Simulated assay, not measured.
Amino acid sequence: MILPFPREFAEDAAERSVADVAQARRLLASLAPGLAAALARRRQALAPITSAGDVERIDRADAAVELAYARLALRHGSWGEDFHAYHNEHHILEIFDSRIARLMAHVGVQALGLDDWLLLGLFAACHDLRQREPAMYSAGVGSNERASIEESFRILDLTGFDRRRDAAFYTGLELTIAGSTFDARPPAQDWEYNSVDLVQSGGALASKLDAKLDKHAPGWRDDPALRHALDLALIAADLDTANVAEPFARFVETGMRLCQEREMRCHRATGDPASALPVFGFLTDGQERFFFELHRFNSDLGRTAFSGAKQANAQPLRALTMALRARMAMLGKPANGDIVIDTMRELTREFESRSLR
């Protein structure tokens, strides 16, 4: 470990239930056959920078992605009993199969080395493995992220990576996952959800990782491998938050999924009357604050690939939140959060329909 993390996050039931790649692949074959297609697309995209000697390393990386995907699907996704509307296996594919492909398309596959692309894929699969750890911070890194780092190291070990030979993968994965922490402010009393809350956050830790390393790992600037790992952490943070650059309806949908997850973590069902105002606030003021104040791209490659699409979403977002406020003012206080979410979906469809005319 580069940063001084307390190492205290033991294996949980999901990790023990999917203990190796063979178990993961048996589950994936019946429950998530689409992952194999995503891995195949990634191999094809990397072909221009792949030689015969690289195949074994790609195989190991693919196995790690499969194991991480299966565990998250069981722990917080569609295979298990603790479903998180945002932080689930779908979010892995959003980054692994969509945003990384967009990054490659904009900057070219030669912009990074093969191991860099493999590491970003590992980040996509591993960065949200844990979501239920008690909120504690060490060197600015949240407990969910630290637990995810520790589990991701065990996944690398299980899939044939070696901590000495492949040290760059372990270091890179540590810094990319650490940098995905959102610098959350103290939450309201009833909020359990406080390690990654976009409404109350100060942005991704990636932009401050250099200062954290200066404090906790002095001399790191003299190590080219660590400097490169920090560069990758900035790119990874941009991939993680590039929902702002998705096609507009998809961007809105990610916000609603995160809102639903937040309400669940606050122990409120969106069908309860108590959820009405929190959902309304999240989807209006919260979305605007995240988009216009808190979010920023940290890397040159991220800005190249995603900033134009984010800019294109700015005016529609302002118009949509204004329309939601107006609709709610006309209808009166909503009965629950579901009404707000349904209204936002309806307004989004209206916006999309007008844009196609």
Rank of each mutant, 00 (worst) to 15 (best):
residue 2 I to E: 07
residue 6 P to E: 05
residue 7 R to V: 01
residue 10 A to N: 06
residue 11 E to W: 15
residue 11 E to N: 09
residue 15 E to K: 13
residue 18 V to H: 14
residue 21 V to S: 12
residue 21 V to L: 06
residue 21 V to P: 15
residue 23 Q to R: 14
residue 26 R to D: 02
residue 29 A to E: 14
residue 30 S to I: 08
residue 32 A to K: 13
residue 36 A to G: 12
residue 36 A to L: 13
residue 42 R to M: 07
residue 42 R to F: 12
residue 43 R to N: 06
residue 57 R to A: 04
residue 59 D to A: 12
residue 61 A to F: 00
residue 62 D to S: 09
residue 65 V to H: 02
residue 66 E to R: 13
residue 71 R to V: 03
residue 72 L to D: 04
residue 73 A to D: 10
residue 75 R to E: 05
residue 79 W to Y: 08
residue 80 G to F: 12
residue 82 D to N: 11
residue 82 D to E: 10
residue 87 H to K: 08
residue 95 I to L: 03
residue 98 S to D: 05
residue 98 S to C: 10
residue 101 A to M: 05
residue 105 A to G: 14
residue 109 V to D: 10
residue 112 L to T: 09
residue 117 W to Y: 05
residue 118 L to C: 07
residue 119 L to F: 14
residue 119 L to N: 07
residue 127 H to D: 06
residue 132 R to I: 07
residue 135 A to R: 15
residue 137 Y to C: 15
residue 145 E to L: 06
residue 146 R to S: 08
residue 147 A to D: 12
residue 148 S to R: 13
residue 148 S to Q: 14
residue 148 S to H: 14
residue 149 I to K: 10
residue 154 R to T: 03
residue 154 R to G: 01
residue 156 L to K: 10
residue 165 R to P: 14
residue 166 D to L: 08
residue 166 D to N: 09
residue 172 G to E: 02
residue 172 G to C: 06
residue 176 T to P: 14
residue 180 S to N: 10
residue 180 S to M: 05
residue 180 S to F: 09
residue 183 D to T: 08
residue 185 R to T: 07
residue 185 R to D: 11
residue 187 P to F: 09
residue 188 A to H: 13
residue 192 E to T: 06
residue 196 V to T: 08
residue 198 L to P: 15
residue 199 V to Y: 04
residue 210 D to E: 13
residue 210 D to C: 10
residue 211 A to Y: 11
residue 213 L to D: 04
residue 225 A to K: 14
residue 225 A to I: 10
residue 228 H to Q: 06
residue 229 A to L: 07
residue 230 L to A: 01
residue 231 D to F: 00
residue 234 L to G: 11
residue 234 L to D: 07
residue 235 I to K: 11
residue 240 D to I: 12
residue 242 A to V: 00
residue 245 A to G: 13
residue 246 E to L: 14
residue 248 F to Y: 13
residue 248 F to L: 03
residue 249 A to F: 15
residue 249 A to P: 15
residue 251 F to S: 01
residue 258 L to D: 03
residue 259 C to H: 02
residue 260 Q to L: 06
residue 261 E to K: 09
residue 264 M to A: 04
residue 264 M to V: 05
residue 264 M to P: 07
residue 266 C to P: 02
residue 268 R to P: 15
residue 268 R to Y: 02
residue 273 P to Q: 01
residue 273 P to D: 03
residue 281 G to A: 02
residue 284 T to Y: 01
residue 284 T to L: 02
residue 285 D to K: 11
residue 286 G to P: 15
residue 299 S to P: 11
residue 300 D to R: 09
residue 306 F to D: 03
residue 311 Q to K: 13
residue 313 N to D: 08
residue 316 P to M: 04
residue 322 M to R: 11
residue 323 A to K: 05
residue 328 M to L: 05
residue 329 A to E: 07
residue 330 M to Y: 14
residue 332 G to V: 11
residue 332 G to A: 12
residue 334 P to E: 00
residue 334 P to Q: 00
residue 338 D to T: 12
residue 340 V to G: 14
residue 340 V to S: 12
residue 349 R to F: 15
residue 350 E to K: 12
residue 350 E to W: 03
residue 352 E to Q: 13
residue 353 S to N: 12
